[in-house]
Design a protein around this nucleic acid. Sequence first.
DNA 1: CATGATGGATTAATAGGCCTTATGCATGCC
DNA 2: GGCATGCATAAGGCCTATTAATCCATCATG
Lengths: 301, 301
Amino acid sequence: MTLPLPPLPAVRAFEAAARHGSFTKAAEELGMTQAAVSYQIKVLEERVGAPLFLRKPRQVTLTEVGQRLAPAFTEAFSLIGEAYAQARSGAEGVLCVSTILTFASSWLARNLGAFQVQHPSLAVRVDTSSRLIDFAREDVDVAIRSGSGDWPGLAKHFLFKAEFSPMLSSKLAASIGGVKAPADLLRLPILDPGDPWWREWFTAAGVPTDALAARPRSSMGAQAYEANAAMAGHGVAILTGALFPSELADGRLIQPFDLVANDGNSYWLVYPEARRNVPKIRAFRDWLLAAFAASLGPQGA
Amino acid sequence: MTLPLPPLPAVRAFEAAARHGSFTKAAEELGMTQAAVSYQIKVLEERVGAPLFLRKPRQVTLTEVGQRLAPAFTEAFSLIGEAYAQARSGAEGVLCVSTILTFASSWLARNLGAFQVQHPSLAVRVDTSSRLIDFAREDVDVAIRSGSGDWPGLAKHFLFKAEFSPMLSSKLAASIGGVKAPADLLRLPILDPGDPWWREWFTAAGVPTDALAARPRSSMGAQAYEANAAMAGHGVAILTGALFPSELADGRLIQPFDLVANDGNSYWLVYPEARRNVPKIRAFRDWLLAAFAASLGPQGA
DNA sequence: CATGATGGATTAATAGGCCTTATGCATGCC
DNA sequence: GGCATGCATAAGGCCTATTAATCCATCATG
């Protein structure tokens, strides 16, 4: 059968001692006492069945067996050490962000460039998925998700509230002579009328929602799609304004009413609590929060 | 400074788990419980700062970081394992025998061939030195030495007694009309007259030793040299017959008197007690004792 | 749809190995 | 001769790795 490995602490002590030609020096390097090194080497010698060092008066010398063993061990540890070091900072080489499609295609797509410039050594992989992410099951570093913010074990940073309001193209609005009152919207096609947000908003606006139920369902499942449809003039979408600042700014989308509804959820940056100090995560967090303050803050104020 | 190595038990557990794609299997291989593997991997993940496995429903998968680490670790352990295995049997590859010159050049030189044939995979290195050997300080497996047999920590096997008797060439003996009585020897050159063996032997033979003291000292320090000198007819040497069986058999040396003296010492095969079961040592010991019984036994009887 | 089997996480408690302290021994140096 | 250096050894303590026990989720099954 395969020979079991020798006790690794013994191998470690021997390797250091071989490199230094001294038990005392090896002990220093390993942060232990000379006695411990002596003990471990004796253990290894017993396992090997041959002496590894010749004990000369004031120095130790490798035996032939020791001379053959030492380079292999040194090589092995250097392999481990390098791989480990690379993994620690190599873990910083790629930052994997999981986010909902809409955020990826809007805010993130426009702003990520700035992050890349600040952190040229960090590659960013963006994974878009609408699933609730489980950090234990997916190879993801940070995620941007909406929710109540109640996720045990996860660190979270508030980004913006999941507020929503109807939006449409100016052309579509003009087609019915402008949208003056909330009820006017019902004269237009409603994109994804089954979305509970519609019911909430209309209720907040004081408009009965009975009419909505009759509408054909046409859920596209992602705000980004609906926003595109709305910009193309296909109907009215109910969207989170914070996700479409530039579209709103240049008029591709208009939000006819100041009234925004809110289902209590918000968007958060989340990641495993335990990894809050991992450099690449810290870097992304700091940048994202600052960038948000800059891009949304002035506009939101 | 150089990054300290990750905890090796954790690396070990991780490597096995990565190879098996299963904590449970890894635990089996390592002879521990699944809980221990789980714990160790968690330790390593904390050190690395990134998850190494994705915990899927009924299996675990390596993350990207884990995928980069695993091959390096496997390689490293295989390096250690191979070197270790080679050292254990590679320790058997070379047998180092330390012996006095005379034994090396006589008995051993003639008989070692038989051992090589029996153990073709074993290389034998013969070191000749007259020093008392310290196994802790010299890279030697077994030694052949004379002495009282009182060496703590060493295993010893009796070879033959350090008996001695005068020897010379037949030609030299004829030059004085043959050696009839011990005192006749004093009419010939005595090789190394200061050797205490002469005094002992003459005393045993009933010959006064006063004459010896006056002789010029000319110690050559090794029986092999003196034997050569004796065979060349330069004088009478006092030698251990057991070391020169063939020379005595074919008449190159003659031992004129049956009287042999004995200083109480003997020749022994010795090696560290703790290594008595090392295969190559066991092989050499078994062969040497058997060969001795065969080569000296019949003759000595 | 309940049930059992599989595989991993978690917790607390344990045992044993590893390390330290203290000391001894041999050597080389001043 | 006395001191410094370097390794070996013995005894004892601590920490770490491990175990046992339990929980949880998933998947297969009847």
